[in-house]
Design a protein around this nucleic acid. Sequence first.
DNA 1: TGTAAATGTAAACACGTGTTCACGATTCAG
DNA 2: CTGAATCGTGAACACGTGTTTACATTTACA
Lengths: 347, 347
Amino acid sequence: MKKSEINSTEIARMAGVSRSTVSRVINNYPNVPQATREKVMQVIEQYNYAPNFSARIMSGKRTSTIGLFMVSREEVFNDSLTNALITRVIESASKRGYYVLTYIIRNTKDDDIMRNVKNTFYQQRIDGGIFIGAANHEPFIEELIADGFVVGVVDQHLEGRSEPNRVISNFNNLEGMRQGVDYLYSLGHRQIAHIAGDPLRWSGPEKLEGFRQAMEAHGLQVRSDWIIPSNFSERSGYQSVQHWLKVTKDLPTAIFACNDSVAFGALRALNEADINVPGDISLMGFDDHLLSARIHPALTSIHVDFSDMMDALTGKLIETIEVSSTDSKRYVGTTELVIRDSCQPLR
Amino acid sequence: MKKSEINSTEIARMAGVSRSTVSRVINNYPNVPQATREKVMQVIEQYNYAPNFSARIMSGKRTSTIGLFMVSREEVFNDSLTNALITRVIESASKRGYYVLTYIIRNTKDDDIMRNVKNTFYQQRIDGGIFIGAANHEPFIEELIADGFVVGVVDQHLEGRSEPNRVISNFNNLEGMRQGVDYLYSLGHRQIAHIAGDPLRWSGPEKLEGFRQAMEAHGLQVRSDWIIPSNFSERSGYQSVQHWLKVTKDLPTAIFACNDSVAFGALRALNEADINVPGDISLMGFDDHLLSARIHPALTSIHVDFSDMMDALTGKLIETIEVSSTDSKRYVGTTELVIRDSCQPLR
DNA sequence: TGTAAATGTAAACACGTGTTCACGATTCAG
DNA sequence: CTGAATCGTGAACACGTGTTTACATTTACA
């Protein structure tokens, strides 16, 4: 007999007890004598028996599974950061006894795909889900939350009200941008451009707003023609800066990118235009990417801890699944300036 | 009522039919008239009803889920390659209507963890599993295969006999090593060292064997003190070469690393010892890592396609799950020399 | 018009488990 | 020694679905 086809009835028969007793042994009920328990355990181990997962859920258990949905149209998945995110969610869930069903969403406009994603919830295949890379207030996520499913999101607007089944993790982007602008200001820079992130993702506009606030705090002007659009990817950083260099009338003395990937792309475009970093222009990133210390020049950036963030999000998600009401459903990570070589004092 | 708590009985009641009819509509049975079908479908869509996943499996369906088990004690997971592997398996499975349960195994000697991994199979939570990074013929994998579960592995010895429920993907390492040695020979190199991979993983010894065969084909000597051990990681490449530089009596003119990560580490160690690549020593990698074209000097390597490999493995795994007997349960990927800057003609 | 075939649908069973309930066996106290 | 309390355990039910079987109804044909 294939071992996987053994069920609790078989075990009961071989141990000479009833199926109920087998169940009681497996689920550690107190009222079963040591002798009986050992006899049953021996048969269980001999046959590598483990109670059928689906049947167990059928009789009222949770699936102990969460969905991890990676949303992206870009080739972002070759990014080591994405990898760290996935890994961290899995390890964090595993630590709490949960499994992770990972799903990749290339196109949120594809009805078949989205039906599939939603069905994962409707079929009660998972107890909750985490969405990474989704647009701020993506309709299908709002729908899931409205239907009562527990959902965790990253990089979304923290509204005033708190909802019982929505968990959010963010970084303190306003503070981070202030740290960056303050540092550039301290180096003597007064003419600073900003490469803005995807307006659909919350951190894009929020970082832009942080940039504005920090600039105005120093009485500096924010020039709209020095706000360069991007979508957070290395390629968009490259293309946007390449195009911007052609149309801009004059150059700033420093550029503050919305993240390090974009800064990598910007650096490439600047190098190709024979603009030296940091000689001609200082360049600052955001996120402190693993490669930032390795590239030339090493990128000055704002460090954030994605591992902590995903760990907290996963923890709060599972807590919400299990007890339905939790103290805090939000995590806001701190930011820290990391000084390397790409920003230098104004000559 | 929470939408997720609606079941087929409720749907049947609201549509004014029996539960059987609802089931027939959902599973596209032919013998239900169009009028009835539409009425039922309308109620289903109105309530976002989807049949309970566990209950469905209970009555004989497959789980449509495969496990992806990443084995590693190293920090390898920050590697963009690992990320590409995970992504590819997920997308390949998704294309075939399967979900992926990802699991990370940091320590194959931890009994709790391994019990957990094996239970994923015994509980019939997954229809099959893929192991990446496992040692060649890891006992617990052999046990699973012996118990009748469908398992896919990467980088394991292709035995003569073919087993019904084991699927394997490899690269043609012998050929790849030959291509590398041939190229170095053509550049005039006669004194070539090899940084060997983890002996527990099949490709380590196989690449070493390929190196031996290719060297002997040219009548070249393989010096045992020029076989430098590593475990495939960047760090081990750095540490091994650093140590080797201290003890070696004389230097070769070229080094052939077992993979690019190790070559990155070796490059770092060589640079720190003021040995110029490719000026003093030529360096060749294997795998054609994403970063290889970007580092300085750009690394000459043996290109392999991990995406194709994982796609094939996942496809064959699912095919095996579904039809139990398949034409081929093996994939051997081709190798191709990619010439960049790190190998130069011998002066 | 009468009978046979085709069609549509409901009731019943199976999947493997957890849990409740009730009953018999044992232990304890008086 | 007897009644009550405790303990151990098996029978029965529930979970939500797919599928089979049987029955009622309609259609087709002679």
